[in-house]
Design a protein around this nucleic acid. Structure first.
Lengths: 217, 217
DNA sequence: GCGTTTACGTTGCAACTGCAATGCAAACGG
DNA sequence: CCGTTTGCATTGCAGTTGCAACGTAAACGC
């Protein structure tokens, strides 16, 4: 049977198991054996695909990032051709918020990794590039809104972009901590966009609220 | 020699060592023996003052929170009698940002604890109360600014407070990740306050920037 | 056919973990 | 003076960790 396996697929399978463990019991519960058990494979196999634990962690981190990026591009693509800057920004940022259980799990993992990379700075290089790109994009959208007359022209797009992205990140953190419900976060995000770009078109308000799962029986 | 010791003092000494370990090597490196070694005591003594590791962690978390609270009240007290809402908010939030090494260390610990409590929700109750109080206070300040005519009257103080606190938290996270320098974070914070309360009095701008330590030799 | 490579599974090990148990000396209460 | 309490150090233990080593069986190259 050997030789017929897709290397990347196996690695992703293992990384998925890792994230399930991390989301449920925290990053410190991630061990070779736990991950292997969660994935339903032997710990030898995990070692076969990741020579070291750190390699596994780094790969898993990349998977989380790719997944959230895919989510965003998918949501943005669903908007159709050139949506308004406001719609675009709101869709992107709301998509990045941990509003349902899937994104909450991812968010927990991302948060844990954040704390992880805060001590291991050499892993964080990819993250830096990503935020820089995001910031540039957001700033561009704000500029576009200003050019269209939809936004206060006096605000510096660069600083506003930093603040806007920070709002999203902060809301995510507080959501993960359970400090307030998703609606509060979305309301605050909309308020921020109002502040930046002027009042919203009413049809836009309150959309994209995720379905609340009923409490577990 | 026994009997002559201040219980709380010892616990704080141990908690300090814990935070040094956590700040340097991450929360997962926090073990009874490491903390004891860092504190320069025997691991038996650590066990004497904290019957379980979780008790030690919880205590340390409380210490971080108290310390940052003390920092804020101290900075606010230094402002003199009834400062303007804007000055008050800016001082508070800037003080909570990890702008120098001491606060960065605290911030790393806080971030790690955040990830820790995201999986252990029963520890997070104290945090919820604290954010609720903070939010109420911030909303009150915004309302006061509105009443004084210094702010846009149309913004909802509650939502603006959530957004403002989220900005601070998000900026802190990105700072800890080293995604941008302190000046960028402060600029974004000021931009946010501008957006909320109107342009700042020029004397205020750019103050409270921490001294940049020269790179280590 | 046969060596090589790939894909695992198993075992073992040294290091580390939290924690209980025990020991002991100093202060204090009586 | 003596038992008790307090403050701490040492030791031990069962469990877990990352990882190396080894074994094996199947596909492939020749």
């Amino acid at each position: 049977m050997p030789k017929r396996v897709d290397h990347g697929e196996r690695r992703k399978l293992i990384a998925d198991a890792l994230m399930r463990v991390a989301a449920e019991r925290g990053l410190e519960a991630v061990s070779l054996r736990h991950v292997a058990a969660e994935a339903g494979v032997s710990s030898g196999m995990v070692q076969h695909y990741f020579r070291t634990k750190d390699e596994m962690m780094t790969f898993a981190l990349a998977v989380v990032r790719e997944r959230s990026e895919a989510r965003v591009t998918r949501a943005v693509a669903a908007l159709g051709d050139d949506p308004s800057p406001r719609t675009l920004l709101r869709t992107m940022l709301a998509e990045l918020l941990p509003l349902d259980e899937a994104r909450q799990a991812d968010g927990r993992v991302a948060l844990a990794f954040l704390a992880y990379t805060a001590v291991r700075p050499e892993v964080a290089a990819g993250l830096h590039r990503e935020t820089a790109e995001l910031l540039a994009f957001i700033a561009g959208q704000i500029r576009a809104a200003q050019a269209a007359g939809a936004a206060q022209a006096r605000v510096d797009p660069g600083r506003a972009a930093v603040a806007l992205l920070a709002v999203m990140e902060g809301l995510g953190v507080y959501l993960l901590g359970g400090h307030y419900p998703p609606e509060t976060a979305l309301a605050a995000l909309d308020a921020q966009l109002d502040l930046l770009l002027g009042a919203a078109p009413p049809a836009q308000r309150g959309r994209a609220v995720p379905p609340r799962r009923p409490p577990k029986p």
